[in-house]
């Protein structure tokens, strides 16, 4: 198997926790992994992304070439579209629908959502609302991970194990909250696929 992923969002939204969990699950499965991040000045309210590659065969480049990304997982709708040239024509965008507006010229939200829905494969999900209703607003990134999990090429229960390992030291309540958030995201994605 091989899955090339771009994780995107705005600095501080928590894309790196998603990467950590997928990474943990991938390592446990004996898969190869490469994950490139950008740290530093770009973290502060600016756009952030991480290239995450998992594969059963050795991986050459830390960066994913244009047109080769299988899934864009984004905590912000405009940030999902920023990396469109990297998405392969059969690839998926799994994105939060809630915009993070910290710039004066943020584009028209309806047009953004229209663009996302016009793609061949996409799941658009209000992870903030779902996180709030089933767990905690802080678990929004894990809801998104849940929604992306059917496309990762790793079984969902292995991802859940990853969540347990990553949040273990924060206590059972935090683990349970995140598992709930994950399940809610997964359920949403499955329902939207069956439509």
């Amino acid at each position: 198997m091989r899955t090339d992923i771009i994780l995107s969002g705005v600095g501080g939204q928590g894309i790196l926790s998603i990467a950590t969990i997928i990474g943990s699950a991938a390592i446990n499965e004996g898969l190869y992994i490469k994950q490139a991040e950008v740290h530093g000045m770009s973290q502060r309210g600016g756009d952030v992304q991480s290239n995450l590659r998992i594969s059963s065969d050795p991986i050459a480049s830390d960066l994913i070439p244009l047109g080769k990304v299988d899934i864009i997982i984004s905590l912000e709708p405009m940030e999902a579209l920023r990396y469109l040239p990297y998405l392969n024509k059969e690839g998926w965008i799994i994105t939060n629908t809630v915009p993070f507006v910290n710039i004066p010229n943020y584009p028209d939200q309806e047009k953004l959502m229209e663009q996302i829905k016009n793609l061949k494969h996409s799941v658009a999900i209000d992870v903030d609302a779902i996180a709030k209703s089933v767990a905690s607003p802080r678990a929004a990134n894990i809801v998104l991970l849940g929604a992306a999990s059917p496309f990762l090429g790793i079984e969902t229960d292995k991802i859940e194990d990853g969540i347990r390992r990553v949040f273990e030291r924060k206590g059972e309540a935090v683990v349970e909250m995140n598992l709930k958030a994950f399940q809610a995201g997964l359920k949403y994605a499955q329902e939207s696929l069956n439509k």
């Binding site: 600016g46 920023r82 040239p85 998405l87 910290n102 710039i103 584009p107 047009k111």
Partner: peptide, 20 residues
């Protein structure tokens, strides 16, 4: 040869970093 890929989305604008 370069493969044909999606063109950049015209709606997307820069999001520069800012002081917290």
């Amino acid at each position: 040869k370069d493969e044909e890929v999606y063109p950049p989305c015209e709606l997307v604008v820069p999001r520069p970093p800012a002081l917290c």
